[in-house]
């Protein structure tokens, strides 16, 4: 039981590190949001659930914290992405298509 929880926690911490690395390395704010959302959501969830597996009497409360993170982290990152889209942060040079202007005017053809 202790070993299984340790392995789950270890995978979670590696994903947390990858999230930090992605926020540092990727070129513009939208790509950083991708790394910052996905890696930290799964990383934090696995770390917390792993602690719950290692200490079985804590399991239900850690599950509650994990589900809370799984529900709220995409929402807060979506709010940040929408704010940077509305305030006009440009995309990086590698980008191939940008349809946000059509979207604001309501043209969806």
């Amino acid at each position: 039981m202790h070993l299984a929880g340790g392995i789950v926690t270890g995978i979670g911490t590696i994903f947390l590190f990858l999230g930090g690395l992605g926020v540092f390395r990727l070129p513009d704010v939208y790509n950083r949001l991708q790394a910052g959302t996905k890696c930290t959501t799964l990383g934090a969830f696995l770390t917390i659930i792993g602690v719950g597996i290692m200490e079985p009497s804590w399991f239900w409360k850690t599950l509650l914290i994990g589900i809370f993170i799984l529900l709220t982290n995409p929402i807060s990152n979506h709010a940040l992405g929408r704010a940077s889209c509305k305030s006009g942060v440009p995309l990086c040079k590698k980008s191939v298509v940008n349809k946000s202007k059509d979207f604001c005017k309501g043209e969806t053809k």
């Binding site: 911490t13 910052g36 290692m54």
Partner: peptide, 25 residues
């Protein structure tokens, strides 16, 4: 830009939540 800094703060806050649970363990 400012949104970059906000993204970094948000990522730090999520990592810190996991760190607090792990410190409790």
């Amino acid at each position: 830009t400012t949104p970059d800094r906000a993204v970094a703060v948000d990522t730090i806050s999520t990592i810190t939540t996991a760190l607090l649970v792990f410190l409790g363990f």
